[in-house]
Simulated assay, not measured.
Amino acid sequence: MSGLLRFLSVPKSAALLALTLLLTASSPAQTTSARLIPFRQGAKWGYADQHRRLVLPLLYDEAGPFVQELAWVRIGPLYGYIDGGGNPVTPVHFTKAGTFARNRATVELNGETFQIDGSGRRLTTPPEPEPETEFLTQGDLTRQNGKVGFRFTVGQAVVPNVYDEILEDYNGLLFVRQGAKWGVINNKGKLTLPLEYDAIRAVEANNFVLPVVEQQGRFGYLAEDGSLLVPPKYRAAEPFVANVARVTTQDGRTGYIDSRGREYFD
Rank of each mutant, 00 (worst) to 15 (best):
E128Q: 15
L195Q: 02
L5I: 12
Q215M: 11
L195K: 00
V184D: 01
R260Q: 13
Y60N: 06
Q216S: 15
G84L: 05
S13Q: 13
V176L: 01
R235P: 00
E204C: 02
A237D: 02
S33T: 04
V212C: 02
Q144L: 14
Q50Y: 04
I75A: 13
T254L: 11
E214T: 11
D258G: 07
E130G: 02
R253Q: 12
R121I: 02
A236Q: 12
D83T: 02
Q250M: 12
L59H: 09
R177F: 00
T95D: 08
P239F: 02
P231I: 09
V158G: 03
R104S: 09
L228D: 00
L222V: 02
G120D: 07
F240L: 02
D164N: 13
Q50A: 10
Y256H: 11
V154P: 00
N187F: 09
Q144D: 11
L4S: 13
V241G: 03
R53E: 11
V55C: 03
T90Q: 05
A180R: 15
L19C: 05
L222I: 01
E204L: 03
T113S: 14
R235E: 12
L195G: 00
L123F: 14
L123D: 04
L56G: 01
L229C: 08
L167M: 14
A180Q: 11
G217W: 04
D198P: 07
E108N: 01
L8K: 14
H51T: 14
L136S: 01
S13P: 01
A15Q: 15
P28D: 07
H93R: 11
A242D: 15
D169W: 00
P57G: 10
P239K: 02
K12Q: 10
F152R: 06
G179R: 05
D225I: 01
A34F: 10
P38H: 05
D117S: 14
G118N: 14
T254V: 11
A101T: 14
A205D: 12
G3Q: 10
R218T: 11
Y60M: 08
T133M: 12
T142K: 04
A157L: 04
R235F: 08
E263Y: 13
G217M: 00
V154D: 12
A63V: 03
G179N: 02
S259Q: 12
S9W: 10
Q41D: 15
G146T: 03
T32R: 12
R74E: 03
K44R: 13
P194E: 09
A236E: 13
K147V: 03
E204R: 14
D266Y: 13
P38F: 02
G80F: 04
Y81H: 05
Y60A: 08
V55F: 01
A43K: 13
E134V: 15
